[in-house]
């Protein structure tokens, strides 16, 4: 992997909330590369700081948080930017997909509104052009009947279709970095399979740098190219997917993998 300017590089990122001592650190010096054309997985359990890392990149930390370190994107340190400059990146060059699409889409806005409103505020194109672009993007995320879909509202879609629409909304401004925070956790496995394929294809076709945040090591193992494992605000292990899953060097990673039902080959007969 080359350290060129595409993608995202996080350097000794430290986030503290509350009193300024090491115990209040939510992130304790994170180093992470999210190169273009790859899916970088960030694994960990609840409270490990993996979501916080994604939020830091988006500049969505709570106001009380103190941040140090660097988040480099196209040679610019996002942490140095003024809120106004950061806004130009956020949602357009760097986009995010959340766990619950029903919560991340506006319930009273048609799909056309969801997709075109922020796109037009970023690009100032005409309504018709925005609509045409929205149709293309919906096609890209394989939402059936995009023309009809544009006129519908979020409650008229299933969870899987909504997540595709949320991804479409993230892709409207042609970002180069996509942060996907537990993008399939709320979905059924059969629906999840389709979304994982979609994310893989977007990564390969568009050369997106995807930061995949999830606690699900199955999802990690099938989608991520490289995996970083977080615990208590630190990255305890990072490396190639195959190596991290099959031969973890860190005991914590080992315990996570061993605890999975999928890795327990014994049936109930063998259990106490």
């Amino acid at each position: 992997m080359t350290a060129d300017d595409s993608g995202l590089r996080i350097r000794s990122l430290r986030v503290t909330i509350g009193r300024d001592d090491a115990e209040n650190d939510i992130l304790r010096g994170i180093d992470l590369e999210v190169p273009a054309g790859q899916v970088t997985g960030l694994a960990g359990e609840s409270g490990s700081g993996k979501t916080m890392t994604g939020m830091s990149v988006m500049g969505l930390l709570p106001a009380a948080a103190r941040v140090s370190g660097q988040i480099l994107f196209e040679g610019t340190d996002l942490l140095e930017l003024s809120p106004a400059r950061l806004n130009a990146y956020r949602g357009s060059r760097i986009a995010m997909v959340f766990q619950d699409p029903t919560a991340s889409l506006h319930p009273m806005l048609s799909i056309e509104g969801q997709l075109t409103d922020h796109y037009r505020s970023h690009t100032k194109v005409s309504k018709a052009a925005a609509r045409k672009h929205a149709l293309e993007v919906l096609e890209k995320v394989q939402v059936p009947d995009p023309e009809i879909a544009l006129r519908k509202y979020p409650h008229q879609f299933s969870g899987g279709q909504l997540q595709r629409i949320a991804i479409a909304s993230a892709l409207m401004c042609s970002p180069s970095v996509l942060i996907a925070d537990e993008p399939t956790t709320a979905l059924d496995v059969t629906v999840q399979a389709g979304l994982l394929r979609l994310l893989r294809r977007l990564c390969d076709d568009l050369g997106l740098a995807i930061l995949l945040v999830t606690h699900d090591l199955g999802v990690m193992s099938s989608l991520a190219d490289r995996i970083a494992v977080m615990r208590n605000g630190e990255i305890v292990e990072a490396g190639d997917r195959y190596q991290v899953i099959t031969a973890p060097t860190d005991p914590y990673t080992r315990s996570l993998i061993d605890a999975l039902p999928a890795t327990q080959t014994t049936g109930p007969e063998a259990t106490p």
Binding site: Q192, A193, G194, L196, L217, G218, Y242, T263
Partner: peptide, 18 residues
């Protein structure tokens, strides 16, 4: 069969389920 095939395997091989 479909349900089983959709479960992502934790084998580090990067196989997409389904």
């Amino acid at each position: 069969q479909r349900l089983l095939a959709a479960i992502p395997a934790v084998d580090g091989l990067g196989r997409l389920p389904g």
